[in-house]
Write a protein that binds this DNA or RNA. Sequence first.
DNA 1: TGTTCTTCAACAATCATTGTAGATACGGAG
DNA 2: CTCCGTATCTACAATGATTGTTGAAGAACA
Lengths: 157, 157
Amino acid sequence: MKSPEELTELFRSTGRKVTAQRQCVFRVLQGDVTHPSAETVHALVSAEMETISLKTVYQTLYDLAELGEIVSLDVGTGMTRFDPNTDDLHHHLVCRRCGSVRDLVADFPQLRVPEGAELGFEVGSAEIVFRGLCPDCRSAAAPEQTSGRRQTQRSRP
Amino acid sequence: MKSPEELTELFRSTGRKVTAQRQCVFRVLQGDVTHPSAETVHALVSAEMETISLKTVYQTLYDLAELGEIVSLDVGTGMTRFDPNTDDLHHHLVCRRCGSVRDLVADFPQLRVPEGAELGFEVGSAEIVFRGLCPDCRSAAAPEQTSGRRQTQRSRP
DNA sequence: TGTTCTTCAACAATCATTGTAGATACGGAG
DNA sequence: CTCCGTATCTACAATGATTGTTGAAGAACA
Ligand SMILES: [Mn+2]
Ligand SMILES: [Mn+2]
Ligand SMILES: [Zn+2]
Ligand SMILES: [Zn+2]
């Protein structure tokens, strides 16, 4: 993701208007490695701008995704996650307890579909999701994290 | 996934009761390679049992997943998909236009997290999702499939 | 057959996300 | 710097998938 200043320029040059709300979203995403959900971004932005609506956050995230500045991820935690790291060569570790997402920077060069196995499917991209337990959740005695964002966890019926 | 008869036995032996509704779900899932959503399963079962409720289908799918007889997948199509193929060594091709999911049976032996890259994360499993266009959707002139299930497609705002 | 516990169907509720409408404000033209 | 057209803002309603609830019906077992 480009810097907030560059994003400001990019938004203007693509016919989008730049507002304080949007710039605040730019700043919050800058350097964020937690793969926040829209609601998490909203919470972070709300600390600075009391009245910003969740809809505005969604809209800005969509614009950024459309411009290729962020990537939207669905890793099965119930909410779409947004990633300012658009590097194709990184994949994700997802905690199956708390839903936190961490980057795994590793190239898997052999990740091509074997000849003939596509059976007419035109493959464009590949994503790998590793599932397991994050450091915090490994100590099973820590069911609640005292700090850090809380993930909405899909509960059993 | 085991056969309907074996599943009947398994349900009884695990203290679950066997009903006509559940057996109908067993039968419908048997040999299904389309990775149906709960609603798709409901539609298929409804052909045989008019009055079965969607909740009952969800409940049965959850039971089957709990017993390890099916796997629930979240591949970003907006609905959880269910897979009677529980083979760990297969991955998925997802059509980004119609949302159809196809199996890709191929082992990726080098799919281990490089030493030290986990940084405290305890990795349990890895899934690969290949995205692209299915044969039907490749011919862009075929925006509507005349036969086959329709996927609820997430629309842009 | 009767008892007990599960499961059923119908219905309401939830959660993330999207749609709508009128008010607001960006930003290029003058 | 001001004005105007249009994109964006906020508040609110609506959607769609999934989950919770409840009284009635059904399965297992003695
Ligand atoms: Mn990432
Ligand atoms: Mn499969
Ligand atoms: Zn965790
Ligand atoms: Zn398709």
